[in-house]
Write a protein that binds this DNA or RNA. Sequence first.
DNA 1: TCTGTTAGGATACGACTGTATCCAAACAGG
DNA 2: CCTGTTTGGATACAGTCGTATCCTAACAGA
Lengths: 235, 235
Amino acid sequence: MPKQVDHDERRRELTAALLRIASTRGLQAVSMREVAAEAGVSLRVVQYYFANKQALLESGLAELGARMNRRAKQRAAAAIEPVGGERVEGEPSVGEMTARAVLAAVLGTVVPFDEQSRLDSMAWTAYYTAALTDPVLAAAGLTLPNALESFLTKRLAAAQQAGEIAPDRDPRIEVAGLLALANGLTSSVLSGQRSYEDATEIIEYHLDRLFGPADGLSRARVPSGEGSAGRISGH
Amino acid sequence: MPKQVDHDERRRELTAALLRIASTRGLQAVSMREVAAEAGVSLRVVQYYFANKQALLESGLAELGARMNRRAKQRAAAAIEPVGGERVEGEPSVGEMTARAVLAAVLGTVVPFDEQSRLDSMAWTAYYTAALTDPVLAAAGLTLPNALESFLTKRLAAAQQAGEIAPDRDPRIEVAGLLALANGLTSSVLSGQRSYEDATEIIEYHLDRLFGPADGLSRARVPSGEGSAGRISGH
DNA sequence: TCTGTTAGGATACGACTGTATCCAAACAGG
DNA sequence: CCTGTTTGGATACAGTCGTATCCTAACAGA
């Protein structure tokens, strides 16, 4: 077989170009020709690697989800090993973090904290809105948020069993509220109503209210002897 | 002068048709011809009453803001006079409601509670997303949320002076958090992740945490002798 | 070297977009 | 009744859209 072109790599470049357009000029500015121009290729190339526009858009949504996932894992890892991470193989996993640290890591990932995550949040918002009137996108776009919510709910319920939060709290309501809070704050950060620092302050404030005002910061490890305080962000 | 056509009325009909399309098929489905068809008139009529598409879209955004305003006021009035409203002229104004009742009314208005407000929230979300990449819409679309936030913040600060909430709370943070929560819940309700009842339960839950778990419900009037409990919504 | 497959350049089609123009009904004021 | 303005029907124009087609370089395997 002739030539040698890495199809996956090609598709990644085109998808990245698509997300660059969607995050700066909106999803309505995305056309096959615009994506081609942004990627520096011809229209035919976009057509060759994506059968139609729908496939291209779905690829963009999948890439966005993957990026969110990657960032959340990086945050969690940084919360476990805050300084210069030499992490041996028996390294602490997410299961050894306090529920508060997990929540702080995930919620801090939802709210845009640097230019790239701001752009991705822009694109994500555009997709989310489009999904409200497009059932095809809705199915693909809701799996990640739903998985996130059920993961956090289980994690917080376990933390409640361990006595980390008061027994009269409802983990499902708390998690749903925190995720809605983070999403709402994301909107206001994107529109310039609030800064990222304001948003994280509000989130930390709510985490304080949930986990008790005692500590006040997001301890990274579960206290085995005495935990070290790993500050993630805030003010 | 010939004919007699109420231009404002005509524009209202066209704007209503625009919002019907935007709320069911999205803002990208709005075209001059589609609006004409939805309103049952010819393309020329839409052109005649709106100089261009931009003016049409801005009219839609203004109408959405007006509807939100109207609903919030109706809610507030219903909270003051919960049963059969005979309201004499010295009627209780919003200034005589408890801060909690004001917050419950406003936040309950943000979250879609019936089919019409669900449709309007859909359209609002579409506009909000479009405003993220369109500075013209952004200016017009942010005035209402900003005014709402500053109004509620002042109201809550006054309530703090009156001892309705604990003195260590920051009214700015509380209001920003509650509004973000309501917006995030709206998103999840629109996408079908959560029901309206779930959303109001979460909001009431947070109001309980803010105003103290003592009462537990949104009392409508400021306690002059003994307030009557006006339940707005919930579960 | 020859061959057959792959990767893409060039071009075109029909549908739809916002906007503009032309012109004819409809009707109020003189 | 006449006239001039308002209202809107009909049509057109230049772009842009997603998609399809045709054809030719480029190159791996024989």
